[in-house]
Design a protein around this nucleic acid. Structure first.
Lengths: 140, 140
DNA sequence: TGTCATTGGTTCGACATCGTACTATATGGT
DNA sequence: ACCATATAGTACGATGTCGAACCAATGACA
């Protein structure tokens, strides 16, 4: 069990480094992740919603969103339903940035893929999701 | 595939937080990991060897070892075979600190364990090790 | 309507992590 | 023996991440 978490930690570290080596200068994995999230889950989300989705504190998300806005990849608008809140939208630059990043990373990831059995990946993913839910519950 | 790395990243984050919440004040996961490594792999390792084992840059390891030495959990001795190098040894305090941490974390991790099938854990672990090796190779 | 607790977001300070540059020792080739 | 190159460890600066404190807007409730 310790070993499992250990392996997970190291892979997380390696995959992050792998990713960031293929992103421009100061961009970091969470930047890409947020763009991706907005495409998949939908735009117009609030910062807290996004922070919860990634299980990070909201001030960290403020920081990440700040970087994305400064680079013109997202647009921040007020939330018409709540005066305290904001909503996050992709710009055209943000959308195309995500696409290019996926191509670039995907290309370099190619050589690794044939080595892994698709079914095994799916089973592992299922187990990890289960594990994550378990850990969420243990957080009280 | 992206989703797999995403899940791994979040679990890594959660498990780290879980761990560190059960360590004293300023201690952090790498501190424990290094102590554990020394017990399992053996004492007398050099900082670079340890850094490589954890896939972190050597200056990060310098920092981590500094923290452990300051707390009296390890002892640093010169390397008789190489004047540039040092060797790292556990103190009694370090050894017992590790034991206590394992007990404390293990106790709180108990409620999660019955939820997971041991065979599934083993299979996942096998796959992740394979994946890690693949990624190591891709690092050139 | 007035008051209090809750929630969204930011600011600030602390710290881990990392790239780069640097010193000191070791190693290999001539 | 001498010099070039590689390697071990450290120092420094930049930055991501986070907890705590804070402000503003909302909601609950008398």
């Amino acid at each position: 069990m310790f070993e499992l978490f250990n392996e997970i930690g190291i892979i997380s570290q390696l995959s992050r480094a792998f990713f960031e080596a293929r992103l421009p200068d100061g961009m970091v994995l969470p930047h890409f992740s947020v763009l991706n999230h907005l495409v998949r889950v939908g735009e117009g989300r609030t910062p807290v919603q996004i922070a919860r989705a990634f299980q990070v504190p909201k001030n960290s998300m403020t920081h990440t969103l700040g970087g994305l806005e400064m680079r013109g990849l997202i647009e921040v608008r007020p939330n018409p339903k709540d005066g305290r809140s904001k909503t996050i939208w992709l710009t055209e630059a943000g959308r195309s940035f995500r696409e290019e990043a996926i191509v670039r990373v995907g290309r370099d990831m190619m050589p690794m893929l044939p080595e892994m059995d698709a079914e095994e990946v799916a089973r592992t993913l299922g187990f990890l999701k289960h594990l994550r839910e378990e850990m969420d519950r243990a957080r009280d």
